[in-house]
Each structure stands twice: as C-alpha cells, then as structure tokens.
Design a protein around this nucleic acid. Structure first.
Length: 222
DNA sequence: CGGAAGATCCACT
DNA sequence: GTGGATCTTCCGA
C-alpha cells in the first residue's frame, strides 16, 4: 500500500460518529487513522488504545458532578470537539467529545501505531519507535498537539480522524482505566488485541479477580 | 493559606 | 521500583 492510500480511501469521520455514547465511540475509534498536519508536517497513525469518560455521572471524569473550570470548558462542547487538557502540569492529553452533548462525555486517545512521519515523531520525542505514541502525553507530543487544539471542531482542525465508510473495528479487549483511583474498575479502556504499541499490556477485570497475589503497585492485575 | 492529588513520563537505582 | 518535574484545583485548618 502506497503512503496515503489508507486515508485516501477513508473518510473524515462525520459528526454523527461522535453522537453516540462515549464507550461506543471509544471502541469504534480503534483502527481509525489519525492525521496531523500541525507545523506543516504530515503525521499519520492508527488508533490502538482509547478510554471512555462518561461525564457528570462518572467519578473519574473531569466533568464529574458538573465541575466547570477554565481548563475543562471544552468537555461540555458539542460532539466531535477536541478537549485538550494539561496532565500533571506538563503533558497535553487529547480527547474527543462524545454524546450526549453537554454531559461532559469524552474519549481519551491513549496510544497510536505510527504509520507516516515517523522521522518527525522521533525527532519530537527522542524515543524509539515503540514509545513514540504509547501513552496519552506521548502521542500528543509526537503529533505536535497542544492546548491550541482545545475547543476546535475535529473536522475543521489540523488533527483529523478518518475511517472507511463501513469501518469495522479490529478485535479488541476492554479493561479497567489507567492512572485513576475512582471508578478505575469500570471496563472503559479499549485496546486493539495484540498491538505492540499500547501504553501498557491490556488487562481484564474479570469478576473472578482473585484476592491476594498482587504487586504493591497493583499495576498488572491479572 | 498550605498541602495534596491528579486521565503522565522519564531518569535513575 | 522509586522519586522528581510542574501546575491547577480542591479541601481542610
């Protein structure tokens, strides 16, 4: 496949794609192609890991109980809008707002598989291929994305997402969300099965999560 | 008003 | 595995 074919045959995701529950959007974004033209450089990558945050009723969401600050205003914007927040005072993280509108529901992009513009990403990141986009802060840096993207409609921005008309997400695994404490066990993290570009290996929170036998940092359940 | 936590990442041991 | 960078928001005193 020649470079570019993947997105030539694919279409810019319509707003209707995002007018569905965040967990549906999160699962269906897997396998879609993300393209950044920030700084005049074309980057393409395949989405391999996402997380859904459900909004005002989700204790882990920035919109929990309707919380509103200057930093999170965009999470309440219409579906298909970028919500970019600062993490730990240093990293940018990219979300796409989902339905229902005004609920504060959004999908966090957690990992991408690099396809095009790898040299640029490597220059921006100074890390090996596998670590270019394996994490929400990492992929933002690789794309050159910053707060400047926040509040923009994805379709009209320099970072777009594409998929074939009849997009069928690849086989994936759902598991607990990463790096949060409240409602962490809700199975809202979605990973492409077998991908080597994930932020960390997928886990499943089975009902049979056996007691004991757990690392001090319960990083790898299962 | 001070301290701690947070949707993270990296260098170092 | 541990701790530091860095900054906004929240909560208790």
């Amino acid at each position: 496949m020649a470079p570019g074919d993947r997105t030539r045959r694919a279409a810019l995701l319509p707003v209707a794609f995002f007018q569905r529950p965040a967990e549906v959007v999160a699962a269906e974004l897997l396998g879609c192609t993300l393209v950044s033209t920030l700084d005049g450089v074309r980057i393409a990558a395949r989405i391999v890991e996402t997380e859904a945050y459900l909004g005002v009723d989700d204790p882990a969401s920035h919109a929990w109980r309707g919380r509103r600050t200057a930093a999170n205003a965009s999470i309440y914007a219409s579906p298909g809008t970028w919500y970019v927040y600062r993490s730990y005072g240093m990293h940018w993280c990219l979300n796409l707002v989902s339905a229902p509108a005004g609920q504060g529901a959004a999908v966090l992009l957690r990992a991408l598989e690099p396809l095009e513009g790898i040299e640029t990403m490597a220059a921006r990141r100074g890390r090996p291929l596998r670590e270019l986009c394996a994490g929400p802060g990492r992929l933002a840096e690789a794309l050159g994305a910053t707060r400047a993207l926040d509040g923009l409609a994805m379709r009209a921005s320099a970072v777009t997402v594409h998929a074939p008309r009849a997009h069928v997400p690849p086989p994936h695994v759902a598991g607990p969300r990463i790096g949060i404490t409240r409602a962490a066990d809700w199975p809202l993290r979605f990973c492409v099965a077998g991908s080597r570009f994930l932020s960390r290996p997928p886990t499943r929170n089975g009902p049979a999560s056996p007691p004991g036998r757990r690392t001090t940092h319960s990083r790898r359940a299962q």
